[in-house]
């Protein structure tokens, strides 16, 4: 908003500026390489191939689904995590570690772990198949499960940060003004954490969209069923690098559009 009084511009000292620009270059230059290498002439033809469209639709559908699931379960988990501040040290740290695990685990190992749990001989998968004849791996549902596993921490930590900044005393102030518990949540907590929830959902969605290792291990790779864009891109790299680059560009474009379109309204830090 333009009416904020201009603060004296905080000038960076030159070492900070140099390091920051280096870091930025490190992030951006590989993308520049990708764009420079792209077969622009054949791009339209490459992108309308049936397998590409199939992978695109599958990726979008599953990433949206897993983001929705992450929101439903992740916001309460973030609330628990934010309130765990008052717990004893051991359970508090265990809880935090449990949420962090998917971030540090190589996704392929995460995929193996999911197989050992939900696979046909898995702890839960075996009884599931015996009782209902349901098998989870190699289904589109398995893609969503793998995405939720790797993307959930992104949502939980973003929302937890927002919840922490939404001071508990702000909620108490609302109560002294006559707000019921529900009204406190509706008029104070929710609007204060909404930007964090939205930012978390965006991160979660883009992570789910780019998910590869856990998906290919747990869900496999069958066109139209479990072969998402990243897997299609990786496979294309084996035989047709141009198509792989085209697919990568598509992923990149989708992520950028999502991030840019949400930037002003939702991502925290823009608002005063």
């Amino acid at each position: 908003m333009g009416r904020r009084t201009a603060e004296p511009a905080a000038r960076l000292s030159w070492p900070v500026a140099v390091l920051a620009v280096t870091a930025l270059a490190f992030l951006v230059l590989p993308i520049v390489g990708l764009i420079a290498r792209a077969p622009w002439g054949e791009l339209p033809e490459l992108l309308v191939r049936a397998p590409v469209l199939e992978a695109l639709v599958l990726s979008f559908g599953t990433a949206l689904g897993s983001t929705a699931i992450c929101l439903v379960f992740g916001v309460p988990l973030a609330t628990l995590l934010a309130r765990a501040g008052g717990w004893r040290a051991l359970p508090r740290r265990l809880l935090r570690a449990a949420v962090t695990v998917p971030l540090v685990l190589p996704p392929v190992v995460g995929g193996i772990a999911l197989l050992l749990l939900l696979g046909r001989r898995g702890l839960v998968g075996a009884p599931l198949e015996a009782a209902f004849g349901v098998t989870v791996p190699f289904t589109t549902g398995a893609v969503v499960i793998a995405q939720v596993f790797v993307a959930l921490p992104f949502l939980v930590f973003a929302v937890e940060g927002a919840l922490r900044s939404a001071n508990r005393r702000t909620e108490l102030a609302a109560a002294t003004l006559g707000a019921s518990r529900w009204q406190v949540f509706r008029f104070v907590t929710l609007p204060l954490v909404a930007p964090g929830v939205a930012a978390g959902a965006v991160l979660c969605f883009t992570r789910a969209l780019g998910e590869f290792g856990a998906t290919i291990t747990f869900a496999g790779s069958l066109p139209g069923v479990t072969r998402t864009l990243p897997i299609a891109s990786y496979l294309a790299m084996q035989s047709d690098p141009d198509e792989a680059v085209a697919l990568a560009l598509l992923l990149l474009a989708v992520s950028l559009v999502v991030l840019l379109s949400l930037r002003d309204r939702w991502v925290p830090g823009v608002r005063a």
């Binding site: 005393r169 108490l172 102030a173 609302a174 109560a175 002294t176 003004l177 006559g178 707000a179 019921s180």
Partner: peptide, 15 residues
């Protein structure tokens, strides 16, 4: 919320 007691916090705690 049912006490009808207003409280002004030391640091105000505005929304």
């Amino acid at each position: 919320e049912h006490r009808r007691i207003g409280l002004v916090f030391q640091d105000y705690v505005l929304f």
